[in-house]
Design a protein around this nucleic acid. Structure first.
Length: 224
DNA sequence: TCATTAAACGCGT
DNA sequence: ACGCGTTTAATGA
């Protein structure tokens, strides 16, 4: 995705907005470039924006007290995040960090609220979005308890290729094995081994700094 | 005993 | 400077 316009065109709620309304929303959005490793927003901040990933990749993450860090989910090109904190009127609960140079859209709280109050398509979108997320997180518990690490990594990858949550993602994902480890909750060495297994099964292609999905359905069924 | 992990190192990009 | 593969030593099931 190249521009805010592309991003809005890929967002079902924005596609159906009347032109004037769409322009009004667009005017409420600030676009900022965030370099790799920089914060998009920080835990504890007051929440003033809904956040969209126009281009790039970010992670929603949290640092434990004992120096550990975990990634709850990645958000790729075309994805929106932060609606939870916006709806609950609370401070930001998690850090959002760019995994590579990214272009990020910040929609004002007022614009978000007016869409919420006036636009049925937007409400449908939010429900669908929240439902996909909920499914992902329930699935995560299931997988953590029931699946081996290869299958868990397969599901972790799959979450990144969810077309509802990240309409702009292609088949290739630029992400390091270390970050995949944070995402799937396993060590880097184990990610490396598991990736080889998935590649061996013909489901992905592994390259320097990236993973390409060859068989989405196969990934979904991996380890039944 | 066996698998997994963090940390360290060296190599290639 | 970063990503990857490997070794090593510690951990724990």
């Amino acid at each position: 995705m190249r521009s805010l316009d592309d991003m809005l065109s890929a967002s079902p709620w924005a596609r159906e907005l009347p032109d004037a309304e769409r322009e009004r929303i667009k005017a409420s959005i600030v676009v900022r470039k965030v370099p790799a490793r920089a914060y998009v927003c920080m835990k504890g901040e007051p929440v003033e924006h809904w956040i969209g990933v126009i281009d790039g990749l970010v992670k929603i993450t949290c640092n434990g007290l004992c120096g550990k860090t975990t990634t709850f989910t990645g958000v790729a090109s075309g994805g929106w995040l932060g609606e939870g904190s916006l709806l609950k009127k609370e401070r930001r609960r998690y850090d959002v960090i760019a995994l590579r140079d990214s272009r990020i859209a910040f929609m004002s709280r007022a614009a978000f609220q007016s869409l919420l109050d006036n636009n049925l398509a937007f409400n449908h979108f939010l429900l669908r979005h929240l439902n996909e997320r909920l499914g992902q997180f329930i699935g995560m518990m299931e997988h953590e308890r029931l699946l081996d690490i290869e299958a868990r990594l397969a599901r972790g990858l799959l979450s990144m290729f969810n077309p509802v949550l990240h309409p702009g993602i292609g088949r290739q994902l630029q992400i390091s094995q270390e970050e995949l480890g944070f995402l799937a909750g396993v060590s880097r060495q184990r990610v490396n081994r598991a990736l080889r297994a998935l590649a061996e099964a013909g489901l992905v292609r592994v390259e320097y700094g990236s993973v390409t999905v060859l068989d989405l359905e196969g990934l979904r069924n991996y380890g039944q």
